[in-house]
Simulated scan of single mutants.
Amino acid sequence: MPNISVLNMDGKSVEEIELNKEIFDIEINEHAVYLVVKNILANKRQGTHSAKTRAEVRGGGRKPWRQKGTGRARQGSIRSPQWRGGGVVFAKKPRDYSYTTPKKVRRLALKSVLTSKAQENEIIVLDDFKLEEAKTKNFKKVLDNVNANRKALVVIADNDENIKRASRNMENVKTTMAQNINVYDILKYNSFVVTKDALKVIEEVFN
């Protein structure tokens, strides 16, 4: 894998480093990526949907008309599913959609999407990312300097309140710590902006 330039906050190259081949240069496994993204989206579901069955709908205790002799179809309750205002046949109830995928599959998927980002030249490495003030315009200026002004995932090594607060108002930007990156976020955002320190954490945690 060719070396990648490390940029400062002004967008100028200060050095070159080689990305870890065990993470950024593997054979991409699309099925593993699919499984993990599906899992992440399922875990995000609230599962608070609820509808009433015919037993839970108010009213309908009396038989609307006698069984025979009216010429109409037999009916037992005006709250049967075929009636307007009746219950739902297979009513949805609150449930937990979350489940887990094997750790090996999650690791493989993460390495696959990082490899994809590297191949598409969408990884931007910063030598450091520090803001003296938590101002959005200062944060945006850094992203513009490094040509990451589209949807960007900014990965930092430590919990930096100035950076997190400065990026909070930016619609297409998300800031996260290196140990918390996931497949869905990496795919969702075009640019993967990572500091050198965060890159070391990724190599330590996910190698």
Rank of each mutant, 00 (worst) to 15 (best):
M1L: 05
P2W: 08
S5G: 11
L7V: 13
G11E: 04
G11Y: 04
S13V: 15
V14C: 00
E16S: 14
K21I: 07
K21C: 05
F24N: 05
E27G: 13
N29P: 11
Y34M: 11
Y34Q: 12
Y34F: 14
L35F: 02
L35W: 04
L41C: 02
K44E: 14
Q46A: 13
K52S: 04
V57F: 10
R58I: 13
R58F: 10
G59N: 08
G61K: 13
W65S: 04
R66W: 00
R66Q: 12
K68C: 09
G69S: 12
A73P: 00
Q82H: 15
G86N: 05
G86A: 05
V88W: 00
V88K: 07
F90Q: 10
A91W: 00
K92T: 08
K93F: 01
P94F: 03
R95T: 08
D96E: 08
S98V: 08
Y99M: 06
K103E: 07
K103V: 06
R106V: 12
R106F: 08
L108W: 01
A109Y: 00
K111L: 09
L114D: 04
E120Q: 14
E120M: 11
N121R: 11
D127N: 14
K130Q: 12
F139P: 02
K140C: 13
V142L: 06
V146C: 06
N147C: 08
A148P: 09
R150P: 10
L153F: 09
V155N: 03
I156R: 00
A157H: 11
D158S: 13
D158H: 13
D160K: 15
N162A: 09
N162G: 02
R165H: 08
R165W: 02
A166H: 03
N169V: 04
N182W: 00
N182E: 01
I186H: 00
N190W: 06
N190Y: 14
V194G: 00
A198G: 01
L199E: 02
K200Y: 00
I202T: 04
E203Y: 04
E204Y: 11
